[in-house]
Design a protein around this nucleic acid. Structure first.
Lengths: 149, 149
DNA sequence: TATTGTTATACTCTATAACTATA
DNA sequence: TATAGTTATAGAGTATAACAATA
């Protein structure tokens, strides 16, 4: 029996489509000066007072080191600030700056438009089916909350 | 109106699931000493006499530079050889070495098992639906044949 | 001139681990 | 001793562009 073809695997099709949509989105947010991972952090910070790097790492499935470097870049762009945690001398929190807060709705708009345009080739029922199946996998396999690769 | 949530986008769910399955597979093929991109090249070379780097770049959606580096690694592992194209002094072809040929069925077996195990949480009909929808997107959006990120 | 492929530079992210400061 | 976070190193990928050899 010959070795199975690349196209035989669901993982292959998933990767192909996921890469295409993420790559498209990356090019668009790049015009606003941020990466996809930075957008995810900014969006998460929008809803709360502040988040510890360790929490970001856990929720995004990134390492502590990667989060540190990402935070450095957002700091350099003056989109966030680092704030020491008064209750724990070891801990920090990342907090949105006004410029970062102003950027989030613009990036969300880009995300909305990118998603709608990319998946416009599907019927509404197909989009519903796709989301349902993907959410089922996330739930059953207990995948981390937010990912960015 | 508040900026839309990260979870609002199909691209987000796709990325989350795709990352999880690819990451799982990457860890498994790493045990055989190759990356996912290297597996894709080896599998493509299995069916044909040889492939030019430029063709690999086009089919895999990678840059020429990335293919060069990838080929260097496969060469260093003695899994492929570079062969000049007799008809065109500029062109090369990458060709599987016996060790590379022997590796492909083992990697294909890993891919089969990884895919089956990961998507076992879905019903058979859901797997069929998912593949059908993803293939429709690839066809309608004319995405490149093979991707590896 | 255009094309094939390699090489170089720079950047994002990954993984591991050393390291500092604090609990 | 364990934890929070930073920093360092190495590797795989991206992108762009310079470059050599050939068409």
């Amino acid at each position: 029996m010959p070795p199975s073809d690349l196209h035989a695997h669901l993982g292959y099709w998933l990767r192909t489509v996921s890469n295409a949509v993420s790559h498209r989105f990356a090019r668009r947010v790049e015009a606003e000066g941020v990466t996809v991972a930075e957008w995810v952090v900014l969006r998460m910070l929008y809803d709360v007072e502040g988040i510890a790097p360790s929490v970001l790492a856990a929720r995004m499935g990134m390492t502590k080191g990667a989060i540190s470097k990402l935070a450095d870049r957002l700091l350099a762009k003056a989109l966030v600030v680092r704030r020491p945690n008064p209750d724990d001398g070891r801990a920090h929190e990342l907090v949105l700056e006004p410029a970062g807060r102003a950027l989030v709705p613009r990036l969300a708009e880009l995300a909305d438009r990118n998603d709608a345009a990319f998946f416009a080739v599907l019927a509404q029922d197909e989009r519903r089916q796709l989301k349902r199946i993907l959410k089922k996998i996330v739930a059953e396999r207990e995948l981390s909350d937010v990912t960015t690769e």
